[in-house]
Design a protein around this nucleic acid. Sequence first.
DNA 1: ATGAAAGCGCTAACAT
DNA 2: ATGTTAGCGCTTTCAT
Lengths: 349, 349
Amino acid sequence: MTKRPRSTGRTTIADVAARAGVSAITVSRALRTPDRVQAATRARVEEAIRELDYLPDAAASTLASRNSNVVGVILPSVTNKVFLGTLRGIYDVAEEGGLQVQISNSRYSQDEEERLLRIFLSQRPAGLIVTGIDQSEATRKLLRSAPCPVVQITETGPDPLDMMVGFDHAAAGALAARHLAEQGYRRIGFLGARQDPRSVRRQSGFRDSLEQLGLFDPARVLFSPDQSSVGLGSRQLLDLLRVDPKADAVLCNNDDLALGALFACQRQGLDVPNRFGICGFNDVEFMAFTSPSLTSVRTPRRQIGIRAMRLIMARIDDPAAVFAPEHLAVELSQRRSTGRDEDATSTPG
Amino acid sequence: MTKRPRSTGRTTIADVAARAGVSAITVSRALRTPDRVQAATRARVEEAIRELDYLPDAAASTLASRNSNVVGVILPSVTNKVFLGTLRGIYDVAEEGGLQVQISNSRYSQDEEERLLRIFLSQRPAGLIVTGIDQSEATRKLLRSAPCPVVQITETGPDPLDMMVGFDHAAAGALAARHLAEQGYRRIGFLGARQDPRSVRRQSGFRDSLEQLGLFDPARVLFSPDQSSVGLGSRQLLDLLRVDPKADAVLCNNDDLALGALFACQRQGLDVPNRFGICGFNDVEFMAFTSPSLTSVRTPRRQIGIRAMRLIMARIDDPAAVFAPEHLAVELSQRRSTGRDEDATSTPG
DNA sequence: ATGAAAGCGCTAACAT
DNA sequence: ATGTTAGCGCTTTCAT
């Protein structure tokens, strides 16, 4: 005795209403604001929904309410493992809040970022998350007048478009550089893959810090146009030794490079940490388990995702709320790969 | 005063039409099927769009056309690096086709998968991609009657819901097991993290294969409830040696475990490959660069994503088209970690 | 607590 | 090649 579907074949709120003996708007309310509908009415509506296997139409809802539940995220790369932790944070919080996440991929291009942003804006997003602080002027303008909360993530800086969660990449680079110097390394190199603005700022923190100590040599800074990988780290380590056979340590711009550097040292028979120190960046899980374990700069990737989504939800709840940029802390996970003497304690986890 | 309708302030297609001196439908056509509009008219429309800074409303378009451009993807985990390659393939093709990708995360739960599917269906997706073949009956029913193309990925099997792209996990497990046996290993273990249906089938291929050779011992099969990680691989290797101190090789259910196992061997002073052989699964990039390099089963992760999206696009173009399940090939990347004598050639890549 | 009417902004279907 | 009409399915506004 089921009701005959309508022209599109889709069961609508009107079908449910008829079945439950109420009006359409009551069904709508039972779905969105259940406490404004009497329990008995609500029960009948819910039963009708189940019987008819009703699925709401998100497009109709968005159109009528001028509001979707989609949060758009623009990342420079979807392949990059670095963003995995942040994505996890984003998804975890999004689920709590009943929000849908849509990721897109700007491939490190400002023009592509603007194009993607326009696509997102056409969906009346509930919120937008963009990576970094280097948007084009057109993009900045669109974001400033976006009809939804906007968060810039990963990096903090001046002139926030709206909200901001990240850390200071130059300071993080400096932290690692100072650590290597303190451990007694004197000919310290820098390995980086395809540059993005964050890499550049990390390197400049590294440079400034070593310059102050009189230890900086630009010849020991290697950037590759290739994508980051373990293989690249191995190759770059050999390159570094070619440039400066006496190089005695390296800051790797991410952990894959550090792992590659470690393997290259093993193959070359270079003792890590005594002959050669290695420090990575991000502190992904494996760094604690290599042999020897690898020092790295721990970055709050998951926290960035969590905080960004929480800011969006807070702003949805209270559109007038103002939130200051959040500068998250970065610290060093000191391990054996930079501990020339005894030292080096760090709990795996 | 008559009832004042809602004001949105949003620039609409009608505004553009007025500005360009045409009707709304002409603007719509200029946007979607430009070749059905005269060049001069089109030019005026485009100018009006620019002048007014018009952005289409995706919800209105979806509602009117009964069709979004969103492809929904349900993965068991968004954190798992294994899916990164597949995601890359999906995004690469989606961009070509002007489709938006929406990922969600079933956390290996069938109920959650069904819930997510309902959310996707409420968006009138252009296509759906689900992982594996172990959907609940309710989910299968929803997918069978979904008004869009559906692809099951990662694994092939009987009873496809619609289209299918993957490989045979049992055969892949068997391939690795035979390889280890052929290399002369005799007490071969298996390490796996939190089980999913694919892990189980890989293990059963491994088991069947070794049973035929009289080499299987269930005591050497270790599954952990924990998530896969390098640290887990290290711990499990030690566990295996505790269970069977004479164990001489291990098939790791993924490459992180294999890397962890390698580090544990290094720490234990076990010679790899002569005292102990290690084979991983997936063949991620770093496997070719460890020291010694690690043998692994190469799986076509990126291809799976590419083919899945291409199938969706092909079906959108021709809704009547029928596509048989695609069984992709899996092969062994043989490297030093399983080459007891000389042997072992494999070019890094 | 519930309902009626009026759109939200766009496109399908049918004109011309 | 372009326009007219009539919704798509829902939620807002205003009323009871």
